[in-house]
Design a protein around this nucleic acid. Structure first.
Length: 211
DNA sequence: GAGGAGATCGTCT
DNA sequence: GACGATCTCCTCT
């Protein structure tokens, strides 16, 4: 069936998309578009790197020690934003997965800027001109959150599956050609589990560029 | 270009 | 009171 893509940045992925195992959702999130829409302003970036966090049996997950006020969103219904503050400096964006009562989520680690690049640069306190390195905008979870103006106060608990939300994921028809699965980054517990998903060869994946 | 350490604060023990 | 799902800057090569 032919579907019009007149405004692919307007329709959020539905809640059922997130109501599955985070490993499966992670694979399918690659290539989707993270959208921030506030009035006439539009920010959009293609997701190129995520990590799955499984729940109470995943020692690296915030939900490992059980439900607290901080991580409550991870235990709630699927499709909600879990934003946490880390290292005294940075926010990180996650989306909850699995049904209400079951913990699980996905960390957004990197994206490829598409729309609103000047605004992202301003949010990151980087120079707004033609010579900047776009990788510095959104390659890394802290950078991505800053570029999109994501904070705990503003976005934690936000419904990413609502058409009234100013923050959501959208599908513009893009499909990742090849997906790479690697161990997660920056953790010490369960550091060997292959739960990091990246679009192979994409320049905006965080960390060092592969040879 | 690579490697190391500091910044900085909310959350949990 | 310790630590963390990070980033940036500084030093050394």
């Amino acid at each position: 069936m032919a579907r019009t893509q007149a405004d692919p940045f307007r329709t959020p992925l539905r809640r059922g998309f997130y109501d599955r195992d985070p490993r499966k959702v992670s694979r399918e999130l690659l290539g989707k578009v993270l959208v921030r829409r506030e009035g006439r302003r539009l920010l959009a970036a293609r997701v190129v790197e995520v990590e799955a966090y499984l729940g109470e049996d995943d020692p690296a997950a915030h939900s490992a020690a059980g439900r607290t006020t901080r991580n409550a969103v991870l235990f709630g219904p699927p499709g909600y934003a879990y934003v946490y503050f880390i290292y005294g400096n940075h926010y990180c964006l996650n989306v909850s997965c699995l049904p209400d009562g079951v913990a699980g989520g996905i960390l957004f680690r990197a994206a490829e800027p598409m729309l609103g690049i000047d605004e992202m640069a301003r949010a990151r306190n980087l120079p707004v001109d033609g010579t900047r390195d776009l990788r510095k905008l959104t390659s890394g979870p802290g950078r991505l959150a800053e570029a999109f103006g994501i904070t705990r106060n503003r976005d934690n608990g936000k419904d990413l599956a609502s058409s009234r939300s100013d923050l959501f994921l959208a599908d513009d028809g893009y499909r990742a050609s090849r997906i790479l699965v690697t161990p997660r980054i920056g953790i010490t517990k369960a550091a060997d589990r292959p739960l990091r998903y990246v679009i192979a060869g994409n320049a905006f994946v965080s960390g060092k560029k592969p040879a």
